[in-house]
Amino acid sequence: MRRLIMRMFQEENDYWRIRNFLRQTLILNELRQLNWHVARLDYWRWHVIENGDAYDPVEKVTYIWETPDGKIAAVLNPEGRGDAFLHVHPAFRTKKMEEEMIAVAEKHLANSCSIGRKVLYVWAHENDDLRKGILEGRGYTKTEIRDCQHRRSLAIPIPDASVAKGYVIRALGDEQEIPARSWASWRAFHPNEPDEKYDGWEWYHNIQKQPLYRRDLDIVAVAPEGEIAAFCTIWYDDFTRTGYIEPVGTVPEHQRRGLGKTVMLEGLRRLKRMGAVVAFVSGFSTAANALYFSVMSDDHNFLVPWKKEF
């Protein structure tokens, strides 16, 4: 095994090298999300960080392991405060490599949880015996959280979906429709929050800045009265010929009309016409996963955070 050099993210070019690393390893891993999909990296940078305000920028929390000739072997980064994701090239995936990455995460990515103590969550797939063994040996315990990662081959026929009466399924409109799209997102994901907490629509510009954004894959369901009732944004990576679905939502008063399923199926059809071969979506809640199982397939796995306080 060649000696690897660990360093922090240093310059903008590192970001684009990491993107290509994730694309290449997705192919090497037979289109299985053992590492992040490139769209998740972009979403973290342009949405979670840029729109979140409370998170450190990419360059302060990203660590790279590379060969002496500059090829990336592994990348470590958080998604929120106090968590860690390990992305490893399959040719360099060893117990020693993962132990070193977790040690770096404990030193640099842990979050304060009480006076003098820190907490860190490290994510591992449920069938990843290597990482689970390392985590157990370092004093981590498995949490009850489950990120269900759904995968669908687009070689499987995509069924037609009837559209609820009066609704129209189409791509998001121009700049003038962004406020309506933003409002629909607020209503879908904050149904119990008072409207006074809504802080505007300008954040959606960061969504549209992402390299893989395509307005024709930003699918919406429009109600008879003209408001956006449901939405599904899809990120297509033509290098891997895969699509990543994030987010999917329906405004509360328009739920139970099959709109979430309808916009997802429309997105899958568009992906297939573009040449995509696989689509991914992830869900935490029972309701979200019920929808995704109805649209995707039974091909899924669970990503689980392991917790350690120290």
Score class of each variant (00 low, 15 high):
Arg152Gln: 11
Leu154Gly: 11
Leu154Thr: 09
Pro157Thr: 02
Pro157Leu: 04
Ile158Glu: 02
Pro159Asn: 05
Asp160Ser: 09
Ala161Asp: 05
Ser162Thr: 13
Ser162Asp: 14
Val163Arg: 00
Tyr167Ser: 09
Tyr167Ala: 08
Tyr167Cys: 11
Val168Tyr: 01
Val168Asp: 06
Ile169Arg: 00
Arg170Gln: 03
Arg170Ala: 03
Ala171Gln: 13
Ala171Tyr: 03
Leu172Gly: 00
Gly173Phe: 04
Gly173Gln: 06
Gly173Ser: 07
Gly173His: 03
Gly173Val: 09
Glu175Phe: 02
Gln176Ala: 14
Gln176Leu: 10
Ile178Thr: 03
Pro179His: 11
Pro179Asp: 09
Pro179Phe: 07
Arg181Met: 14
Ser182Glu: 07
Ser182Lys: 00
Trp183Thr: 14
Ala184Gln: 07
Ser185Asp: 14
Arg187Cys: 03
Arg187Asn: 01
Arg187Thr: 00
His190Gln: 13
His190Asn: 15
His190Ala: 09
His190Leu: 07
His190Glu: 12
Pro191Arg: 01
Glu193Phe: 14
Glu193Cys: 10
Glu193Arg: 13
Pro194Trp: 06
Pro194Arg: 05
Pro194Phe: 01
Asp195Phe: 10
Asp195Pro: 05
Asp195Arg: 11
Asp195Tyr: 02
Glu196Asn: 12
Lys197Trp: 10
Gly200Tyr: 08
Gly200Arg: 08
Gly200Met: 09
Trp201Glu: 06
Trp201Gln: 04
Trp201Ser: 14
Trp201Cys: 05
Glu202Arg: 10
Trp203Met: 00
Tyr204Arg: 12
His205Ile: 01
Asn206Val: 01
Asn206Phe: 11
Asn206His: 15
Asn206Thr: 08
Ile207Val: 15
Ile207His: 09
Gln208Arg: 13
Lys209Thr: 02
Gln210Leu: 06
Leu212Asp: 01
Leu212Cys: 04
Arg214Pro: 04
Arg214Glu: 15
Arg215Phe: 01
Arg215Trp: 03
Asp216Met: 12
Asp216Cys: 06
Asp216Phe: 07
Asp216Gln: 07
Asp216Ile: 08
Asp216Val: 05
Leu217Ser: 01
Leu217Tyr: 00
Leu217Gln: 02
Asp218Gln: 02
Asp218Pro: 00
Ile219Glu: 02
Ile219Leu: 06
Val220Arg: 08
Val220Thr: 11
Ala221Tyr: 04
Ala221Thr: 07
Ala221Met: 07
Ala221His: 04
Val222Arg: 10
Val222Leu: 04
Val222Thr: 11
Ala223Thr: 13
Ala223Trp: 12
Pro224Glu: 05
Pro224Phe: 03
Pro224Trp: 06
Glu225Tyr: 09
Gly226Asp: 11
Gly226His: 10
Gly226Thr: 12
Glu227Arg: 13
Ile228Trp: 03
Ile228Ser: 08
Ala229Glu: 10
Ala229Arg: 08
Ala229Asn: 08
Ala230Phe: 09
Ala230Trp: 04
Phe231Leu: 14
Phe231Trp: 07
Cys232Ala: 13
Cys232Val: 02
Ile234Cys: 02
Ile234Gly: 02
Ile234Tyr: 05
Trp235Pro: 03
Trp235Val: 03
Tyr236Ile: 06
Tyr236Gln: 01
Tyr236Asp: 02
Asp237Gly: 02
Asp237Met: 01
Asp238His: 12
Asp238Thr: 08
Asp238Arg: 13
Phe239Trp: 02
Thr240Trp: 10
Thr240Tyr: 12
Thr240Pro: 10
Thr240Asn: 10
Arg241Ser: 14
Thr242Gly: 13
Tyr244His: 09
Tyr244Met: 01
Tyr244Cys: 04
Ile245His: 10
